[in-house]
Design a protein around this nucleic acid. Structure first.
Lengths: 343, 343
DNA sequence: CCATGAAGTTTACGCGCGTAAAAAATAGAT
DNA sequence: ATCTATTTTTTACGCGCGTAAACTTCATGG
């Protein structure tokens, strides 16, 4: 290997005996050049270490190959996993993903969109907080850049939404709980920071009604993303006060359930579906840790991969056709029941 | 507000009646221009929405203001938290952090360094896997770009290392366990993917010896990052086989401990420091979930913030002085004991 | 063999900003 | 008001690559 330092495309053109515009074409899409020349280029690339300057590349390009990915909180393993899936989908399609976390802070979401603006991404995959206040920022951002929402919906905003069908998944869980024991009450946050929570409450109400049972809802005070803490404190209070009028509690999400499980343990309350148990607790999301709770948590698994891939491919289609779809798309995937020990 | 579209610095110079080179100076360091002109510029900035083009900026700059941050696995809440701290330190110092996860895959770490290369970062904060095979890549990368290691050390590589003093922290835990009950055995992975695990084993051996006890080590088979799974499977096997020759188990990290706790629960073994308990389990790292395990986990808290801030400030100092320090620095922070229910 | 369309080459310009050097303007002190 | 040091303006060039247009070469089929 000569390994002579190649400083720019011009020098690579010289040593490879291929014109610079053709090299430029190659780097923008290796398949856009004839097979034989591609091989010549790639041969040269093996002997002369060269990589195009990203800054120079993106300066004059109409669109970059960057895809922004924004999730509300990477510290939450749910978003960590789905974010990873989305990243992989982008890489697989030849894009450069840029994953940003809003750290549980809606203001950070705005900052993240602002940062992304200067990176001129070809498109953005956004899992929004879903608060009303975000809408203006998101829509303003969406004016110039195509955005596909996932996980949480903001009605009518952006090109498309991909998520889980909470009505299906909650109904599935309610059905299971009713068949296998007492009908559940619902445990959730009083002011949920996520629109899915509202969907789930509504789904719970409808499902209970359909099954001919009276719904009961218990709401925990508390703000922020410390769901386990809130579930533990408020759930513990409710358990010790014997507040539940059923022995079965459906938690709005796994993290609340994890907190409540720890409270039940602390209070010596035996949780599970066995004969010796006096309380059943179920969750929603199949959090990575829900397999290792005590007892392991019965929950609903969302199809991470399907959501991520659909969201990504929808965005790529919009980018490729270079036009907004005339109709906003909403895609909902089914959740699946994961039966473990807790209910 | 006129809000006329400003396309570039030249146009901003026109409307603000300030020359373009001065504007350029301002954007590279607002304090490098006279106070009065800075105010004029910032006034203009409020009425004319303009933001410099990052790609054009970085093309000709000697160094960018980017800082690469690479952690082994963002899905692990430990790295998620410490990564966040490092990010904040960078933003606070006026740099642009770029956080990358290696997803538990050493090959990905190499790819991440490769990606960072094209972003020409001013420096990199790296939490390496610490495998021998990585060394060459890291050192080659470090030839051109200053790197500060954190969390896991690679002996003699890069400018500096910042982490936790495992000898201090393990000794602290062993001391506590010995004072409060039977001396601990150690539970760890057979082939740990992290050099801290080796340090901790060594620390355990020395500490037990110093206290006049015979050390016992139990190693779990298994590869990868599914620590909870491994802790649950292997830990469960050891518990049910009554393999431990003491009622106290010190786990090499919290995630193993979480897995073992779930196994103990499954097997009906009562864990804790109370009189009714037959097994004590302790961990290391103060994982965000260790407060919500059943029972809550006694562990060692690492000083995330101190590690992150020291690593960042060390890197900034190297970047500012623009020269490699003549001596490689190693900084170790003390861990602190967190007494909960499990031991 | 030539016709024909596809692919590569030549030439040229521009993107938005960094940066350097020399000239001009400004602020603060005497 | 005058001097001096600092700051700003003027002028100019270059970074590495995208991209367009006109031209030339190439591959393939009849």
């Amino acid at each position: 290997m000569a390994q002579k330092k190649i400083r720019n495309m011009e020098e690579l053109a010289a040593v490879s005996r291929i014109s610079r515009p053709t090299l430029s074409k190659y780097f923008n899409d290796p398949d856009s050049v004839r097979r034989s020349t591609r091989e010549r280029i790639e041969l040269a690339l093996t002997q002369f270490d060269y990589r195009p300057n990203v800054y120079a590349m993106n300066q004059n390009r109409r669109k970059t190959r960057n895809i922004g990915i924004v999730v509300p909180n990477l510290a939450d393993p749910f978003f960590s996993e789905i974010g990873r899936e989305v990243e992989l989908a982008c890489i697989g399609a030849g894009y450069t993903p840029i994953l940003l976390s809003s750290h549980g802070n809606p203001a950070q979401e705005r900052d993240n969109l602002e940062s992304l603006r200067s990176l001129k991404p070809a498109g953005v995959l956004l899992a929004p907080f879903g608060r009303v206040s975000d809408r203006a920022d998101i829509e303003s951002f969406n004016k110039h850049i195509p955005v596909v929402l996932f996980d949480a919906n903001v009605e009518t905003a952006c090109e498309a939404f991909v998520g889980t069908d909470n009505f299906q998944s909650i109904d599935l869980m309610v059905e299971y709980l009713c068949r296998s024991g007492e009908p559940p009450c619902l445990f959730e946050m009083k002011s949920p920071s996520n629109p899915n929570a509202n969907k789930r409450r509504q789904a719970y109400l409808e499902s209970m009604q359909r099954h001919g049972y009276t719904p009961h809802i218990f709401q925990a005070e508390g703000e922020g993303w410390n769901f386990e803490e809130i579930g533990s404190a408020e759930g513990g209070r409710l358990i010790s006060e014997n507040a539940f009028n059923t022995n079965t509690v459906l938690c709005s999400n796994d993290r609340l359930a994890i907190g409540m499980l720890s409270a039940a343990y602390r209070l010596g309350k035996r949780v599970g579906h066995g004969p010796a148990c006096t309380l059943r607790i179920a969750g929603h999301d199949d959090h990575p840790f829900s397999r290792f709770t005590c007892p392991s948590l019965t929950t609903i698994a969302q199809d991470y991969a399907a959501i991520a891939n659909r969201a990504a491919s929808t965005l790529f289609r919009i980018i490729d056709t270079d036009e907004r779809p005339e109709k906003r798309e909403e895609t909902l995937f089914n959740g699946s029941l994961v039966m473990r020990e807790s209910a």
